[in-house]
Design a protein around this nucleic acid. Structure first.
Length: 465
RNA sequence: GGUCCCAUCGUCUAGCCCGGUCGAGGACGUAGCCCUCUCAAGGCUAAAACACGGGUUCGAAUCCCGUUGGGACCGCCA
Protein backbone atom coordinates (compact mmCIF):
# COMPACT_ATOMS: atom_id res chain seq x y z
CA UNK A 1 0.00 0.00 0.00
CA UNK A 2 1.44 3.30 -1.12
CA UNK A 3 1.45 5.96 1.57
CA UNK A 4 2.72 9.45 0.86
CA UNK A 5 2.61 12.69 2.73
CA UNK A 6 2.70 16.40 2.18
CA UNK A 7 4.51 18.03 5.07
CA UNK A 8 4.48 21.82 4.93
CA UNK A 9 5.76 24.05 7.66
CA UNK A 10 3.18 26.69 8.46
CA UNK A 11 5.48 29.67 8.16
CA UNK A 12 3.66 31.15 5.19
CA UNK A 13 0.77 30.60 2.81
CA UNK A 14 0.83 27.63 0.47
CA UNK A 15 2.83 28.81 -2.51
CA UNK A 16 3.14 27.53 -6.06
CA UNK A 17 6.08 25.26 -5.27
CA UNK A 18 4.51 23.71 -2.22
CA UNK A 19 1.25 23.23 -4.07
CA UNK A 20 2.98 21.32 -6.82
CA UNK A 21 4.74 19.10 -4.30
CA UNK A 22 1.38 18.42 -2.68
CA UNK A 23 -0.18 17.72 -6.08
CA UNK A 24 2.51 15.25 -7.13
CA UNK A 25 2.11 13.41 -3.85
CA UNK A 26 -1.65 13.40 -4.18
CA UNK A 27 -1.53 12.20 -7.80
CA UNK A 28 0.92 9.49 -6.89
CA UNK A 29 -1.32 8.32 -4.06
CA UNK A 30 -4.46 8.37 -6.18
CA UNK A 31 -2.73 6.68 -9.10
CA UNK A 32 -1.61 3.83 -6.87
CA UNK A 33 -4.83 3.80 -4.86
CA UNK A 34 -2.79 4.64 -1.79
CA UNK A 35 -3.11 7.15 1.01
CA UNK A 36 -2.31 10.84 1.00
CA UNK A 37 -1.41 12.17 4.42
CA UNK A 38 -1.09 15.74 5.60
CA UNK A 39 1.43 16.52 8.29
CA UNK A 40 2.11 19.97 9.64
CA UNK A 41 5.76 20.51 10.48
CA UNK A 42 5.40 23.12 13.15
CA UNK A 43 8.32 22.39 15.43
CA UNK A 44 9.60 25.90 14.85
CA UNK A 45 7.10 27.48 17.16
CA UNK A 46 8.35 30.99 16.71
CA UNK A 47 7.56 31.05 12.99
CA UNK A 48 4.55 28.75 12.78
CA UNK A 49 1.06 30.17 13.14
CA UNK A 50 -2.49 28.83 13.30
CA UNK A 51 -3.45 31.23 10.57
CA UNK A 52 -1.00 29.68 8.14
CA UNK A 53 -2.12 26.17 9.03
CA UNK A 54 -5.68 27.09 8.18
CA UNK A 55 -4.63 28.88 5.05
CA UNK A 56 -2.68 25.85 3.82
CA UNK A 57 -5.60 23.53 4.50
CA UNK A 58 -7.92 25.93 2.71
CA UNK A 59 -5.62 26.05 -0.30
CA UNK A 60 -5.39 22.27 -0.46
CA UNK A 61 -9.14 22.07 -0.24
CA UNK A 62 -9.54 24.59 -3.04
CA UNK A 63 -7.21 22.57 -5.24
CA UNK A 64 -9.24 19.48 -4.45
CA UNK A 65 -6.32 17.64 -2.88
CA UNK A 66 -8.22 15.77 -0.22
CA UNK A 67 -6.17 14.01 2.40
CA UNK A 68 -6.92 10.58 3.80
CA UNK A 69 -5.20 11.09 7.12
CA UNK A 70 -4.25 14.05 9.21
CA UNK A 71 -3.52 16.78 9.53
CA UNK A 72 -1.03 15.47 12.05
CA UNK A 73 0.92 18.05 13.92
CA UNK A 74 4.47 17.61 15.03
CA UNK A 75 3.92 19.74 18.09
CA UNK A 76 1.50 17.09 19.31
CA UNK A 77 4.12 14.41 18.96
CA UNK A 78 7.02 15.91 20.85
CA UNK A 79 7.28 13.08 23.38
CA UNK A 80 7.69 10.53 20.60
CA UNK A 81 10.68 12.32 19.10
CA UNK A 82 12.23 12.81 22.49
CA UNK A 83 11.95 9.11 23.28
CA UNK A 84 13.63 8.15 20.00
CA UNK A 85 16.39 10.69 20.55
CA UNK A 86 17.15 9.36 23.98
CA UNK A 87 17.10 5.84 22.67
CA UNK A 88 19.84 6.77 20.20
CA UNK A 89 21.74 8.46 23.02
CA UNK A 90 21.52 5.34 25.17
CA UNK A 91 22.63 3.14 22.33
CA UNK A 92 25.68 5.32 21.77
CA UNK A 93 24.46 6.42 18.33
CA UNK A 94 24.13 10.00 19.47
CA UNK A 95 25.89 12.15 22.05
CA UNK A 96 25.44 15.19 24.22
CA UNK A 97 26.88 18.38 22.79
CA UNK A 98 27.61 21.12 25.27
CA UNK A 99 28.63 23.77 22.78
CA UNK A 100 26.44 26.84 23.01
CA UNK A 101 24.80 28.32 19.92
CA UNK A 102 27.01 31.37 20.37
CA UNK A 103 30.17 29.29 20.37
CA UNK A 104 29.03 27.40 17.32
CA UNK A 105 28.20 30.58 15.49
CA UNK A 106 31.59 32.09 16.33
CA UNK A 107 33.37 28.99 15.06
CA UNK A 108 31.30 29.01 11.91
CA UNK A 109 32.27 32.59 11.21
CA UNK A 110 35.90 31.76 11.88
CA UNK A 111 35.83 28.80 9.51
CA UNK A 112 34.17 30.86 6.80
CA UNK A 113 36.84 33.50 7.19
CA UNK A 114 39.55 30.89 6.77
CA UNK A 115 37.77 29.51 3.76
CA UNK A 116 37.09 26.18 5.42
CA UNK A 117 33.79 24.33 5.32
CA UNK A 118 31.68 25.59 8.23
CA UNK A 119 31.09 22.20 9.73
CA UNK A 120 30.82 21.14 13.38
CA UNK A 121 34.18 19.83 14.55
CA UNK A 122 32.69 17.01 16.65
CA UNK A 123 34.54 18.14 19.73
CA UNK A 124 31.86 16.82 22.08
CA UNK A 125 31.69 13.43 20.41
CA UNK A 126 34.52 12.13 22.58
CA UNK A 127 33.18 13.34 25.94
CA UNK A 128 32.10 10.17 27.66
CA UNK A 129 30.95 11.40 31.08
CA UNK A 130 27.77 13.42 31.57
CA UNK A 131 28.50 17.07 32.36
CA UNK A 132 26.26 19.26 34.47
CA UNK A 133 25.62 21.74 31.68
CA UNK A 134 22.81 22.30 29.18
CA UNK A 135 23.23 20.10 26.14
CA UNK A 136 21.78 19.32 22.76
CA UNK A 137 21.81 15.82 21.33
CA UNK A 138 23.83 15.25 18.21
CA UNK A 139 23.63 12.30 15.90
CA UNK A 140 26.81 10.38 15.08
CA UNK A 141 27.37 10.29 11.35
CA UNK A 142 29.77 7.50 10.32
CA UNK A 143 33.23 9.00 9.87
CA UNK A 144 34.01 7.10 6.71
CA UNK A 145 32.35 5.45 3.76
CA UNK A 146 29.64 6.82 1.56
CA UNK A 147 25.91 6.61 1.23
CA UNK A 148 23.80 6.48 -1.87
CA UNK A 149 20.28 7.76 -2.26
CA UNK A 150 18.37 5.75 -4.87
CA UNK A 151 16.27 8.62 -6.04
CA UNK A 152 13.25 7.87 -8.19
CA UNK A 153 13.70 11.09 -10.16
CA UNK A 154 17.42 11.78 -10.03
CA UNK A 155 18.76 8.25 -10.05
CA UNK A 156 21.51 7.19 -7.67
CA UNK A 157 23.14 10.08 -5.81
CA UNK A 158 26.21 9.36 -3.73
CA UNK A 159 27.52 11.38 -0.80
CA UNK A 160 30.73 10.92 1.14
CA UNK A 161 30.02 10.46 4.82
CA UNK A 162 33.02 12.62 5.61
CA UNK A 163 31.17 15.56 4.07
CA UNK A 164 28.25 15.13 6.42
CA UNK A 165 27.95 16.78 9.78
CA UNK A 166 26.91 15.40 13.15
CA UNK A 167 23.54 17.08 13.18
CA UNK A 168 21.60 18.13 16.23
CA UNK A 169 18.49 16.02 16.66
CA UNK A 170 17.29 17.41 19.98
CA UNK A 171 17.84 21.03 20.92
CA UNK A 172 18.97 22.05 24.38
CA UNK A 173 15.40 23.07 25.16
CA UNK A 174 14.32 19.50 24.50
CA UNK A 175 12.60 20.13 21.16
CA UNK A 176 13.51 17.97 18.17
CA UNK A 177 14.81 19.28 14.86
CA UNK A 178 13.48 18.84 11.36
CA UNK A 179 15.80 16.15 10.02
CA UNK A 180 15.02 13.98 12.99
CA UNK A 181 11.26 14.52 13.08
CA UNK A 182 10.88 13.65 9.42
CA UNK A 183 12.54 10.31 9.91
CA UNK A 184 10.56 9.43 13.01
CA UNK A 185 7.29 10.58 11.47
CA UNK A 186 7.78 8.98 8.09
CA UNK A 187 8.58 5.72 9.84
CA UNK A 188 5.78 6.06 12.35
CA UNK A 189 3.26 6.96 9.66
CA UNK A 190 4.46 4.12 7.45
CA UNK A 191 5.32 6.42 4.57
CA UNK A 192 6.44 4.41 1.55
CA UNK A 193 7.48 7.23 -0.81
CA UNK A 194 8.88 10.59 0.13
CA UNK A 195 8.16 12.99 -2.73
CA UNK A 196 9.53 16.41 -1.95
CA UNK A 197 11.45 19.35 -3.35
CA UNK A 198 15.00 19.00 -4.55
CA UNK A 199 16.08 21.37 -1.80
CA UNK A 200 15.87 18.36 0.50
CA UNK A 201 18.18 16.16 -1.52
CA UNK A 202 21.24 17.14 0.51
CA UNK A 203 19.43 16.26 3.74
CA UNK A 204 18.58 12.80 2.56
CA UNK A 205 21.88 11.00 3.34
CA UNK A 206 21.73 12.31 6.91
CA UNK A 207 18.20 11.03 7.22
CA UNK A 208 19.16 7.68 5.79
CA UNK A 209 21.81 7.32 8.50
CA UNK A 210 19.20 8.03 11.12
CA UNK A 211 16.95 5.36 9.64
CA UNK A 212 19.77 2.86 9.84
CA UNK A 213 20.66 3.86 13.40
CA UNK A 214 17.04 3.31 14.34
CA UNK A 215 17.20 -0.07 12.66
CA UNK A 216 14.53 0.71 10.09
CA UNK A 217 14.33 0.65 6.32
CA UNK A 218 14.20 4.09 4.66
CA UNK A 219 11.29 4.81 2.32
CA UNK A 220 11.78 5.46 -1.39
CA UNK A 221 12.77 9.00 -2.26
CA UNK A 222 11.80 11.20 -5.19
CA UNK A 223 13.20 14.71 -5.30
CA UNK A 224 11.38 16.92 -7.73
CA UNK A 225 12.99 19.98 -9.29
CA UNK A 226 12.39 23.48 -8.00
CA UNK A 227 10.06 26.08 -9.44
CA UNK A 228 11.95 29.28 -10.10
CA UNK A 229 10.86 32.85 -10.66
CA UNK A 230 11.34 34.55 -14.05
CA UNK A 231 14.76 35.72 -12.83
CA UNK A 232 15.73 32.09 -12.25
CA UNK A 233 15.95 32.48 -8.51
CA UNK A 234 13.83 30.62 -6.05
CA UNK A 235 10.22 31.71 -6.20
CA UNK A 236 9.49 34.22 -3.46
CA UNK A 237 7.29 37.15 -2.52
CA UNK A 238 9.20 39.55 -4.67
CA UNK A 239 8.05 37.63 -7.74
CA UNK A 240 4.54 38.87 -7.03
CA UNK A 241 1.66 36.55 -6.33
CA UNK A 242 3.01 33.19 -5.34
CA UNK A 243 0.34 32.19 -2.85
CA UNK A 244 -2.07 29.71 -4.35
CA UNK A 245 -5.06 31.37 -2.74
CA UNK A 246 -4.22 34.68 -4.32
CA UNK A 247 -4.87 33.02 -7.67
CA UNK A 248 -8.25 31.88 -6.45
CA UNK A 249 -8.96 35.47 -5.45
CA UNK A 250 -7.87 36.71 -8.85
CA UNK A 251 -10.44 34.49 -10.52
CA UNK A 252 -8.48 31.43 -11.52
CA UNK A 253 -10.21 28.05 -11.57
CA UNK A 254 -8.69 25.46 -9.31
CA UNK A 255 -8.67 22.84 -12.07
CA UNK A 256 -6.70 25.19 -14.28
CA UNK A 257 -4.21 25.70 -11.48
CA UNK A 258 -3.94 21.95 -10.94
CA UNK A 259 -3.44 21.36 -14.66
CA UNK A 260 -0.81 24.09 -14.81
CA UNK A 261 1.06 22.77 -11.80
CA UNK A 262 0.99 19.23 -13.11
CA UNK A 263 2.62 20.30 -16.38
CA UNK A 264 5.39 22.11 -14.55
CA UNK A 265 8.04 19.42 -14.47
CA UNK A 266 5.86 16.60 -15.69
CA UNK A 267 4.52 15.78 -19.11
CA UNK A 268 2.56 13.21 -21.01
CA UNK A 269 3.56 13.45 -24.65
CA UNK A 270 2.15 16.57 -26.28
CA UNK A 271 -0.99 16.76 -24.19
CA UNK A 272 -1.56 20.09 -22.47
CA UNK A 273 -5.04 19.82 -21.04
CA UNK A 274 -5.89 17.08 -18.61
CA UNK A 275 -8.91 16.28 -16.54
CA UNK A 276 -8.15 15.28 -12.98
CA UNK A 277 -8.96 11.68 -13.82
CA UNK A 278 -6.51 11.75 -16.69
CA UNK A 279 -3.88 13.21 -14.43
CA UNK A 280 -4.43 10.43 -11.94
CA UNK A 281 -4.36 7.82 -14.66
CA UNK A 282 -1.23 9.07 -16.38
CA UNK A 283 0.86 10.46 -13.55
CA UNK A 284 4.15 8.76 -12.87
CA UNK A 285 7.49 9.70 -11.42
CA UNK A 286 9.41 8.50 -14.50
CA UNK A 287 8.02 11.36 -16.54
CA UNK A 288 9.02 13.96 -13.98
CA UNK A 289 11.85 16.03 -15.43
CA UNK A 290 15.14 16.69 -13.71
CA UNK A 291 15.60 20.33 -14.56
CA UNK A 292 14.18 23.27 -12.66
CA UNK A 293 11.19 25.03 -14.17
CA UNK A 294 10.38 28.70 -14.39
CA UNK A 295 6.95 29.79 -13.35
CA UNK A 296 5.17 31.11 -16.44
CA UNK A 297 2.16 33.20 -15.44
CA UNK A 298 1.16 33.74 -19.09
CA UNK A 299 0.61 30.07 -19.64
CA UNK A 300 -1.43 29.79 -16.49
CA UNK A 301 -3.63 32.59 -17.77
CA UNK A 302 -4.08 30.80 -21.08
CA UNK A 303 -4.94 27.55 -19.34
CA UNK A 304 -7.45 29.38 -17.21
CA UNK A 305 -9.16 30.77 -20.30
CA UNK A 306 -9.27 27.27 -21.75
CA UNK A 307 -10.88 25.98 -18.57
CA UNK A 308 -13.42 28.78 -18.59
CA UNK A 309 -14.39 27.72 -22.10
CA UNK A 310 -14.72 24.13 -20.96
CA UNK A 311 -16.84 24.96 -17.93
CA UNK A 312 -20.64 25.00 -18.18
CA UNK A 313 -22.47 28.30 -17.87
CA UNK A 314 -24.29 27.07 -14.78
CA UNK A 315 -21.02 26.27 -13.04
CA UNK A 316 -19.45 29.55 -14.11
CA UNK A 317 -22.42 31.44 -12.74
CA UNK A 318 -21.95 29.82 -9.39
CA UNK A 319 -18.25 30.65 -9.44
CA UNK A 320 -18.61 34.22 -10.66
CA UNK A 321 -21.18 35.33 -8.11
CA UNK A 322 -18.65 36.13 -5.36
CA UNK A 323 -16.81 38.30 -7.86
CA UNK A 324 -20.00 40.08 -8.92
CA UNK A 325 -20.67 40.86 -5.28
CA UNK A 326 -17.11 41.99 -4.77
CA UNK A 327 -17.32 44.30 -7.77
CA UNK A 328 -20.57 45.66 -6.44
CA UNK A 329 -22.72 44.56 -9.38
CA UNK A 330 -24.79 42.29 -7.21
CA UNK A 331 -25.92 42.54 -3.62
CA UNK A 332 -25.30 39.78 -1.13
CA UNK A 333 -28.19 37.33 -1.37
CA UNK A 334 -29.50 38.83 -4.59
CA UNK A 335 -30.03 36.30 -7.37
CA UNK A 336 -30.07 36.42 -11.15
CA UNK A 337 -32.46 34.64 -13.44
CA UNK A 338 -30.69 31.38 -14.20
CA UNK A 339 -31.48 31.08 -17.90
CA UNK A 340 -30.76 34.74 -18.52
CA UNK A 341 -27.49 34.69 -16.60
CA UNK A 342 -26.35 31.60 -18.48
CA UNK A 343 -27.04 33.33 -21.76
CA UNK A 344 -25.02 36.29 -20.58
CA UNK A 345 -22.12 34.09 -19.51
CA UNK A 346 -22.23 32.12 -22.73
CA UNK A 347 -21.72 35.30 -24.69
CA UNK A 348 -18.69 36.23 -22.61
CA UNK A 349 -16.94 33.04 -21.62
CA UNK A 350 -14.67 32.78 -24.60
CA UNK A 351 -13.40 36.31 -24.24
CA UNK A 352 -12.60 36.23 -20.54
CA UNK A 353 -9.50 34.72 -19.09
CA UNK A 354 -10.45 34.93 -15.42
CA UNK A 355 -13.61 34.97 -13.36
CA UNK A 356 -12.74 38.48 -12.38
CA UNK A 357 -12.74 39.56 -16.01
CA UNK A 358 -16.01 37.73 -16.53
CA UNK A 359 -17.60 39.50 -13.58
CA UNK A 360 -16.41 42.84 -14.83
CA UNK A 361 -17.76 42.20 -18.32
CA UNK A 362 -21.14 41.22 -16.89
CA UNK A 363 -21.66 44.71 -15.52
CA UNK A 364 -23.34 45.91 -18.71
CA UNK A 365 -25.82 43.09 -18.57
CA UNK A 366 -26.70 43.58 -14.93
CA UNK A 367 -26.54 47.30 -14.19
CA UNK A 368 -29.18 49.78 -15.35
CA UNK A 369 -26.64 52.24 -16.64
CA UNK A 370 -22.95 51.91 -17.39
CA UNK A 371 -20.17 54.45 -17.32
CA UNK A 372 -18.99 55.24 -20.81
CA UNK A 373 -15.32 55.25 -21.51
CA UNK A 374 -14.43 58.89 -22.39
CA UNK A 375 -12.29 58.05 -25.40
CA UNK A 376 -14.93 55.79 -26.91
CA UNK A 377 -17.53 58.45 -26.27
CA UNK A 378 -15.47 61.09 -28.00
CA UNK A 379 -14.98 58.90 -31.02
CA UNK A 380 -18.42 57.36 -31.42
CA UNK A 381 -20.97 59.62 -29.76
CA UNK A 382 -20.83 62.59 -32.10
CA UNK A 383 -23.23 64.91 -33.83
CA UNK A 384 -23.01 62.61 -36.81
CA UNK A 385 -23.95 59.49 -34.89
CA UNK A 386 -26.64 60.93 -32.63
CA UNK A 387 -29.25 61.04 -35.43
CA UNK A 388 -28.48 57.44 -36.21
CA UNK A 389 -28.82 56.51 -32.58
CA UNK A 390 -32.13 58.36 -32.44
CA UNK A 391 -33.42 56.49 -35.45
CA UNK A 392 -32.34 53.08 -34.24
CA UNK A 393 -33.84 53.80 -30.85
CA UNK A 394 -37.20 54.45 -32.45
CA UNK A 395 -37.00 51.27 -34.46
CA UNK A 396 -35.96 49.18 -31.50
CA UNK A 397 -38.76 50.67 -29.45
CA UNK A 398 -41.24 49.48 -32.02
CA UNK A 399 -39.93 45.95 -31.87
CA UNK A 400 -42.31 43.46 -30.32
CA UNK A 401 -39.95 40.55 -29.92
CA UNK A 402 -36.61 41.82 -28.71
CA UNK A 403 -34.57 38.96 -30.07
CA UNK A 404 -31.24 38.66 -31.82
CA UNK A 405 -32.55 38.02 -35.34
CA UNK A 406 -35.21 40.72 -35.17
CA UNK A 407 -32.63 43.16 -33.90
CA UNK A 408 -30.25 42.15 -36.65
CA UNK A 409 -32.93 42.81 -39.24
CA UNK A 410 -33.42 46.33 -37.94
CA UNK A 411 -29.72 47.05 -38.12
CA UNK A 412 -29.38 45.56 -41.60
CA UNK A 413 -32.38 47.41 -42.95
CA UNK A 414 -30.99 50.66 -41.71
CA UNK A 415 -27.55 49.92 -43.10
CA UNK A 416 -29.02 49.09 -46.50
CA UNK A 417 -31.34 52.08 -46.59
CA UNK A 418 -28.63 54.56 -45.75
CA UNK A 419 -25.76 52.84 -47.47
CA UNK A 420 -23.80 52.63 -44.25
CA UNK A 421 -21.25 50.16 -43.13
CA UNK A 422 -22.50 48.11 -40.22
CA UNK A 423 -19.74 49.38 -37.98
CA UNK A 424 -20.95 52.94 -38.40
CA UNK A 425 -24.08 52.14 -36.48
CA UNK A 426 -22.98 49.10 -34.47
CA UNK A 427 -20.05 50.81 -32.77
CA UNK A 428 -21.98 53.84 -31.47
CA UNK A 429 -24.67 51.53 -30.14
CA UNK A 430 -22.06 49.29 -28.56
CA UNK A 431 -20.47 52.23 -26.82
CA UNK A 432 -23.79 53.44 -25.46
CA UNK A 433 -24.89 50.01 -24.29
CA UNK A 434 -21.64 48.52 -22.97
CA UNK A 435 -19.61 51.62 -22.23
CA UNK A 436 -16.76 50.56 -24.46
CA UNK A 437 -15.86 49.53 -27.99
CA UNK A 438 -15.35 45.93 -26.98
CA UNK A 439 -18.09 43.39 -26.43
CA UNK A 440 -19.72 40.28 -27.86
CA UNK A 441 -21.78 40.63 -31.03
CA UNK A 442 -24.07 43.64 -30.80
CA UNK A 443 -27.36 41.83 -31.53
CA UNK A 444 -26.58 39.28 -28.86
CA UNK A 445 -25.67 41.97 -26.39
CA UNK A 446 -28.87 43.89 -27.01
CA UNK A 447 -31.05 40.85 -26.59
CA UNK A 448 -29.41 39.97 -23.29
CA UNK A 449 -29.40 43.54 -21.99
CA UNK A 450 -33.07 43.59 -22.89
CA UNK A 451 -35.36 46.14 -24.43
CA UNK A 452 -35.96 48.19 -21.34
CA UNK A 453 -32.34 48.82 -20.40
CA UNK A 454 -31.29 49.22 -24.01
CA UNK A 455 -33.83 52.01 -24.57
CA UNK A 456 -33.03 53.65 -21.24
CA UNK A 457 -29.34 53.87 -22.05
CA UNK A 458 -29.89 55.09 -25.61
CA UNK A 459 -32.33 57.77 -24.54
CA UNK A 460 -30.10 59.04 -21.81
CA UNK A 461 -27.27 59.56 -24.26
CA UNK A 462 -29.52 61.14 -26.87
CA UNK A 463 -31.06 63.53 -24.39
CA UNK A 464 -27.72 64.52 -22.99
CA UNK A 465 -26.54 65.82 -26.31
C1' G B 1 34.26 28.38 -0.61
C1' G B 2 32.64 22.97 -0.10
C1' U B 3 29.00 19.25 -1.48
C1' C B 4 25.01 17.82 -4.52
C1' C B 5 21.68 18.50 -8.70
C1' C B 6 20.69 20.28 -13.60
C1' A B 7 21.39 21.97 -19.02
C1' U B 8 16.47 21.19 -26.23
C1' C B 9 12.98 27.61 -29.03
C1' G B 10 12.08 33.79 -24.45
C1' U B 11 8.94 30.04 -21.27
C1' C B 12 6.66 24.86 -20.27
C1' U B 13 8.19 20.62 -22.72
C1' A B 14 8.45 15.83 -26.55
C1' G B 15 12.61 13.11 -28.17
C1' C B 16 17.53 11.00 -24.56
C1' C B 17 17.26 5.20 -20.83
C1' C B 18 17.08 1.29 -25.94
C1' G B 19 22.39 6.29 -31.00
C1' G B 20 20.16 6.42 -37.50
C1' U B 21 12.80 7.47 -38.66
C1' C B 22 15.18 14.80 -35.86
C1' G B 23 16.52 18.95 -42.22
C1' A B 24 14.40 18.47 -33.65
C1' G B 25 7.73 17.89 -32.59
C1' G B 26 3.79 20.22 -29.45
C1' A B 27 2.08 24.25 -26.23
C1' C B 28 2.30 29.46 -24.15
C1' G B 29 3.90 34.07 -25.76
C1' U B 30 5.30 37.13 -30.22
C1' A B 31 4.45 38.61 -35.61
C1' G B 32 1.49 38.23 -40.08
C1' C B 33 -2.82 36.58 -42.83
C1' C B 34 -8.02 34.71 -42.97
C1' C B 35 -12.79 35.22 -40.56
C1' U B 36 -15.31 39.85 -38.90
C1' C B 37 -20.15 45.04 -36.36
C1' U B 38 -15.67 45.72 -32.09
C1' C B 39 -13.00 42.39 -29.03
C1' A B 40 -12.15 37.58 -28.31
C1' A B 41 -12.48 32.64 -29.97
C1' G B 42 -11.27 29.72 -34.28
C1' G B 43 -8.22 28.58 -38.79
C1' C B 44 -3.56 29.16 -41.43
C1' U B 45 1.58 30.84 -41.65
C1' A B 46 6.26 32.71 -39.67
C1' A B 47 10.46 33.77 -36.58
C1' A B 48 12.49 30.94 -32.48
C1' A B 49 16.38 25.74 -29.36
C1' C B 50 19.83 20.47 -29.02
C1' A B 51 25.17 25.78 -23.89
C1' C B 52 30.46 25.01 -25.53
C1' G B 53 34.72 21.78 -26.45
C1' G B 54 36.67 17.06 -26.86
C1' G B 55 36.03 11.93 -27.45
C1' U B 56 33.35 6.88 -28.72
C1' U B 57 30.94 5.51 -33.42
C1' C B 58 29.94 4.46 -40.29
C1' G B 59 26.49 7.78 -37.66
C1' A B 60 25.21 11.62 -31.38
C1' A B 61 20.14 16.08 -29.18
C1' U B 62 20.66 10.97 -27.61
C1' C B 63 26.65 7.45 -24.74
C1' C B 64 31.55 9.20 -22.05
C1' C B 65 34.86 13.21 -20.28
C1' G B 66 35.86 18.28 -19.53
C1' U B 67 34.44 23.52 -19.61
C1' U B 68 30.89 27.13 -18.95
C1' G B 69 26.31 28.49 -17.04
C1' G B 70 22.20 27.98 -13.62
C1' G B 71 20.05 26.04 -9.12
C1' A B 72 19.95 23.86 -4.20
C1' C B 73 22.08 22.77 0.41
C1' C B 74 25.86 23.68 3.96
C1' G B 75 21.44 26.59 11.31
C1' C B 76 20.07 24.39 18.48
C1' C B 77 15.04 26.98 10.29
C1' A B 78 12.02 23.61 7.81
Amino acid sequence: MVRVRFAPSPTGHLHIGGARTALFNWLFARHHKGKFILRIEDTDRSRSTEEYIESIIEALKWLGLDCDEGPYRQTERMEIYKAYAYRLLQEGKAYRCYCTPQELEARRQQAMKEGKPPRYDRRCRSISEKLDKPFAIRFKIPLEGESTVQDLVKGPVTFKNSELEDLIILRSDGTPTYNFCVVVDDFDMKITHVIRGEDHLNNTPKQIHIYHALGIEPPQFAHIPMILGPDRSRLSKRHGATSVLSYRDEGYLSDAMVNFLARLGWSYGDQEIFTKDELIKYFNLQQVGKANAIFNAEKLLWLNSEYIKLTSEEKLLELVIPFLIQEGYLKEGETLDLAWACKAIKSLKERCRTLKELAHAMRYYILDYVDIDPKSKEKYITEKTIPLLREITEKLEALEEFTQDKIEKIFMDMVNEKGLKLGQIAQPVRVVITGSTVSPGIYEVLEIVGKEKTLKRLRRVIHAS
